Simulated assay, not measured.
Amino acid sequence: MPIEVACHLNVLVPDLSEPGLSGALTALAELGYSHVVLPPIDPGSAPLAEWAALFRDHGVAPITLGGQAPGADVSAADPGDQERGAAALRRLVDATVELGGDQMNGVSYGLFGRAETVPGREAFERAARSLGAVADHAHAHGVTMTFEVLNRYETAMLNTAQQALDFIATSGSAHLRVHLDTFHMAVEEADMLGAVRSAVPVLGYLELGQSGRGPLGSGSVDPVAVVREALSAGYQGRIGVEAFSRSVLAGDASDMLAIWREPFTDGRSLAEEAIAIIRRAEAAAGSSDSTAS
């Protein structure tokens, strides 16, 4: 079976409003994507049943994104803050199930954004233990939980694959998985391919993002090499496509992510090129395996 490929919704549209959502799902289904990554949602106010019907009708399954907020943060020293952060993640697990999804990604180990100081080991351990418990809860409900490793400008908690491996070991969970993104890896990893290979046993999501946030075929990241390395190391999980442009993304989200330019204006064309690159890499990896055997 071909590897499953997901695309971030914000490649095509700024949010989940209609008619943009239906149009985006139609385009992704036509291009051969099996999943769509949603921007953050509020489970308490989102029309979950309505969205679930759309995903089901288009044959494109959702992947949700979990996060933390001030006063609800699993890495915080205050036990109440920790529990509120974990509770928010559990609510998103329930929403993921209601939406018809089986995967929850996100920056779920602490607050997003540039930190003033390096978090201490205690914060790291609090976050790991909390996420381990939520991941076990998610597994019991048929949802795989991953956490995304970011660059230094977006978090001080986890910046490398090696730190992610330590985080999983500290979590005490057999179900928590790593989400690696080549955009962030291009900043932090001295050996991107080696980092991918090292994480494969616990890799739950491999996301392809170019150095300039634009088309996969243009930038300093070699997506074909990354995909081939992961597959040759035995990775069988999903591969994601992520790109952001101020011409598509909402203004507040663009500001938060520091998307100041327009590296693309046609999201459908970007998604079409991206899945073609992934399929070529997949075929090349298969050919290499056959030759080696």
Results as ranks from 00 to 15, higher is better:
A174M: 02
A61W: 10
L193N: 09
F147K: 09
E4F: 03
E98A: 15
A123P: 02
A281D: 10
M256G: 00
R121I: 00
A123G: 02
G267Y: 02
G142R: 06
A115L: 04
G67P: 03
P201H: 06
V118K: 10
L48T: 13
E98Q: 13
V11P: 02
H8Q: 14
A186W: 09
L12I: 12
G132P: 02
G85M: 03
P223V: 07
V37I: 13
V187Q: 14
E18M: 12
F124Y: 11
I275C: 11
S211E: 08
Y33P: 03
G100M: 12
L89I: 04
S34M: 04
T26L: 09
V226T: 14
S211A: 10
I3W: 14
A174D: 15
S290V: 14
T144N: 01
V97W: 07
R228K: 15
L231T: 01
A86P: 09
T26S: 15
A283S: 15
V134W: 01
I63L: 14
P47Y: 03
D42C: 01
M192C: 11
G172E: 01
R261G: 11
T96D: 05
E188C: 10
M192N: 05
V227T: 09
V149A: 13
A127V: 01
A69Y: 11
G194P: 05
A156G: 14
R279Y: 10
G23P: 01
F112Y: 15
L111Q: 03
A283Y: 02
A133K: 12
G120D: 10
F112D: 02
E273H: 13
I259Q: 14
V221W: 08
V134T: 04
G132C: 04
G217F: 10
H184R: 07
L38K: 06
G101Y: 12
L111K: 01
G66N: 09
R261E: 15
A52W: 05
D191S: 13
L216R: 11
D15N: 15
A283P: 05
G20D: 04
R90H: 01
V149D: 12
A195Q: 11
D57G: 04
G132K: 02
V196P: 07
E282N: 12
P62A: 11
S293Y: 03
S211G: 14
E207Q: 15
A174L: 07
L12G: 06
T265M: 09
S173A: 08
G32A: 08
G59R: 08
M185P: 11
D191I: 12
H137E: 12
P263G: 15
R152G: 08
Q68H: 05
E188Y: 00
P39E: 03
S288D: 15
F147W: 05
S173W: 01
R280H: 14
A174E: 15
T155C: 13
P40H: 04
V226I: 13
